[in-house]
């Protein structure tokens, strides 16, 4: 089964985009894809990643225009330093490969946020991008068959 992990901090406004998109994917593809929402990528997620057919990670971005959606495939065999408290998307795939002998094809979907201040709820421009980002996630997964 495919795995979608949305991550971020829901009490830092648009940093909750990963959660929002993951939940939208879950709503639209319930039972067809495994969806997780987490504050940070952690070493223990490597086991879940290794078991996935295809992995899509969803996160808010500060280097994109608010509401802009980017989907990128992470290079096979890329390495990055894992940390005990938080991993990058690349490090998670790398750790899955090192510890469990397999890393799925991994994609990173990022959405530009407007405000990362304290507070719950997405800004209007970020909220408007949730559907498009969910489309991007589902498109990646449907391409895998």
């Amino acid at each position: 089964m495919h795995l979608v992990i949305g991550f971020g901090n829901t009490v830092r406004r648009d940093d909750g985009l990963g959660f929002a998109v993951a939940r939208e994917v879950e709503r639209r593809a319930a039972g067809q894809v495994r969806v997780m929402t987490v504050f940070q990528l952690l070493p223990e997620h490597a086991e879940d990643a290794a078991a996935a057919e295809r992995l899509v990670l969803v996160d808010a971005a500060v280097d994109l225009a608010p509401g802009e959606v980017r989907c990128q495939r992470l290079a096979d065999g890329a390495t990055a330093r894992p940390r005990p408290h938080s991993l990058s998307a690349t490090a998670l795939a790398d750790l899955a490969r090192t510890l469990y002998g397999r890393a799925p094809e991994t994609f990173l979907v990022t959405i530009g946020g407007e405000s990362f201040d304290f507070g719950e709820g997405l800004t209007p421009r970020a909220a408007a991008a949730v559907e498009q980002a969910a489309d991007a996630v589902l498109s990646v997964l449907s391409a895998a068959g």
Partner: peptide
């Protein structure tokens, strides 16, 4: 660090994760 541990003792790292 945890990288070195993963490389030198992957079975220990897996146990910790589990």
């Amino acid at each position: 660090n945890v990288v070195g541990l993963v490389e030198a003792h992957p079975e220990i790292a897996r146990l910790g994760i589990q």
